[in-house]
């Protein structure tokens, strides 16, 4: 059964087509990642599904029941972490979790709140005011709060943005644990590693449209490339003219998608010699979601 079904969702802000005819399914118990660059329309999409924004057009189904209006019944079954986390600054971590439990009218014991704080490793911060928390702690509090009503479906909007690698890995562990517990999770991110690590299924979004979807394996296989050769050079432009399939990434790295690695390396080194260009830091790697996006749009995810 699908926990969420979306058909032809549309939302325009004046001339901006924030969401432009989006359709997808989120099967129950799976983690689905909505991957896309800034401004792709990820937040708009999930917030319409959560009932925070009005759709211009389209249909939303929760557990295959049409939800024209996201009412209290739906809201009491979902857990939400917004992209921008804000709580009452002068309440403590404990009080914040307690408050939100109250808003769902669920009876919580002290032990329930403690369990949630333990889950996100905030037990030592129980009595700290929200305003004193670091960015990462705040994100984890937001995650804990999104779980107070023991939701069937969890929406996480960029849960790890702005976290250091260690904190990010910690959040990933929590999400994996929640998946083990059988929660359905719709996650937005612009980190391909996050999608690769957590998602059963990835929806790639750009300019308000879903441009590709499938499992990570399916998406990678779809671009028909065996490997990628990455390197740096001082004369990127000259080389690009010679090899049209060469692309520049955000770190001024050049990437060459190849099917036959050995042959391509020869070709590249010969060309460089011919043109008297020096090539450095050569890396050969397997394709990833970033390459899928690049292949589809000609741009990098982090543009």
């Amino acid at each position: 059964m699908n926990a969420i079904t979306v058909r032809n969702l549309r939302k325009y802000y004046g001339a901006t087509k924030a969401v432009d005819g989006v359709s997808f399914d989120v099967p129950q118990g799976e983690v689905v990642a909505l991957l896309g660059p800034n401004g792709a329309g990820k937040t708009t999409t999930v917030e319409i599904i959560e009932g925070l924004r009005e759709k211009d057009d389209g249909e939303i189904f929760y557990f295959e029941k049409k939800a024209d209006h996201i009412d209290k019944t739906v809201k009491s079954q979902i857990g939400v972490q917004l992209q921008k986390t804000a709580f009452f600054e002068y309440l403590t971590v404990y009080e914040t979790i307690e408050l939100f439990a109250g808003l769902y009218n669920v009876k919580v014991q002290k032990s329930d709140i403690e369990r949630l704080m333990n889950l996100v490793a905030l037990q030592e911060k129980a009595k700290s005011r929200v305003r004193t928390l670091s960015g990462g702690q705040l994100q984890r509090l937001a995650l804990a709060v999104s779980l107070v009503n023991d939701p069937k479906i969890l929406f996480l909007d960029e849960p790890t943005t702005g976290l250091d690698p260690q904190a990010r890995r910690h959040v990933w562990e929590i999400i994996e644990q929640l998946k083990q517990e059988g929660k359905t999770i719709l996650l937005t991110t612009h980190y391909m590693e996050e999608a690769e690590k957590l998602a059963d299924r990835v929806l790639i979004m750009d300019h308000g449209k879903i441009i590709a979807s499938g499992t990570v394996q399916e998406l990678i296989r779809s671009i028909d490339m065996e490997s990628y050769i990455e390197f740096t050079t001082d004369k990127a432009q000259i080389l690009q003219k010679e090899i049209p399939s060469l692309r520049v990434t955000d770190h001024e790295k050049l990437v060459l998608p190849v099917i036959d690695v050995e042959e391509s390396i020869h070709m590249l080194l010969n060309k460089a010699k011919e043109l008297a260009i020096s090539i450095d830091n050569i890396v050969i790697r397997r394709p990833n979601l970033e390459d899928v996006f690049l292949n589809l749009t000609g741009r990098s995810l982090r543009d």
């Binding site: 925070l52 809201k75 009491s76 917004l82 804000a86 808003l103 769902y104 009218n105």
Partner: peptide, 14 residues
Amino acid sequence: EEWVNRRLYTTPTN
């Protein structure tokens, strides 16, 4: 402006 109320609206609070 701080999005606190949107956070409330994700719950059954209107």
